[in-house]
């Protein structure tokens, strides 16, 4: 009896958290999405979402999130692989992780300085005769900075997956006639897929709703679902439409979660025998 009531006691913080910060906000967002600008009940917001403007917005949001995730993955996988082979791998990993502890806004502002008209990159361009270039407020700078921000989150799960891989499996693959590339494709990649999926999850989903980097680095040239929500709430004051976009954003997140779900098979053990 004692333990049962004690367990109920432990449940309180979790229950309160879920109720206050998960259930209530989602319910509120759902509720507001059903009202128009004048406060009358409507499904118009949902109809609007399927108009070409918002569909294009959604599509572009996905496209940028896809690009950010892709480039992060292309850089993170080889990096993580290389790190697991180094002598002081935990130290090197830490050096990559540390910048992610610094406030996002600070780092973003730093890039405004770096990419700006009077920044070091343009100074270099001027010096070698290319001349001043507009770097800030371009697709390139937006993706570059986003990738920079997300890379540590992509590296960490992939590093862990590769590090857990039983090295005897690589020997076994080589022993059975596979060259390095085939070994990677048939053994290493499938067995570290869960790490890759985690990495995609923690990159793609937040990238869908980026709004600060879009504002500061892309200068509103890139509009994502995140910036759209912000504008609906703060600029247009159309809470109903903002909430509707948020509802879809949550929906997309769930769909992505389903797609990147970890399968048990071969995942946890990663080849080591119990």
């Amino acid at each position: 009896m004692q333990s049962k009531s004690a367990r109920a006691l432990y449940l309180i913080p979790y229950g309160a958290w879920i109720l206050l910060f998960v259930v209530a906000p989602i319910a509120l967002v759902g509720y507001y999405s059903l009202f128009d600008l004048h406060g009358s009940f409507t499904f118009g917001n949902y109809r609007n979402f399927f108009s070409s403007i918002y569909l294009r917005l959604t599509l572009s949001s996905f496209w940028y999130a896809f690009l950010i995730t892709l480039f992060s993955l292309l850089i993170a996988y080889p990096t993580a692989y290389y790190l697991t082979k180094t002598k002081h791998k935990q130290l090197w990993l830490l050096l990559i992780i540390i910048p992610s502890w610094i406030n996002l806004l600070l780092k973003t502002y730093a890039f405004i300085g770096i990419f700006g008209q009077y920044g070091p990159i343009n100074a270099l361009f001027a010096a070698i005769g290319i001349g001043n270039k507009q770097i800030l407020f371009t697709d390139f700078s937006f993706i570059f900075v986003s990738v920079y921000i997300f890379i540590p989150f992509m590296i960490l799960p992939i590093f862990n997956a590769i590090d857990r891989l039983n090295p005897a499996l690589i020997d076994a693959s080589r022993d059975l006639g596979a060259n390095s590339w085939t070994t990677f494709r048939r053994v290493i990649l499938p067995l570290t897929m869960n790490g890759v999926k985690s990495g995609i999850q923690v990159t793609f989903i937040p990238a869908l709703s980026l709004f600060m980097i879009t504002r500061l680095i892309a200068g509103n040239k890139v509009i994502t679902l995140g910036t759209a929500i912000e504008q609906q709430f703060l600029v247009t004051q159309n809470w109903g439409m903002g909430s509707t976009i948020a509802v879809f954003l949550i929906l997309f997140m769930f769909i992505i979660m389903l797609f990147t779900e970890q399968r048990e098979k071969g995942g946890t053990g990663n080849g080591r025998n119990r």
């Binding site: 076994a172 060259n179 025998n273």
Partner: peptide
């Protein structure tokens, strides 16, 4: 000669079977 080109196959201590 790299291991994948040798006419030798190994039974490993912990078997090293591919879990996937």
């Amino acid at each position: 000669v790299p291991p994948n080109e040798r006419q030798v196959n190994t039974v490993f201590q912990d078997y090293a079977l591919f879990p996937h």
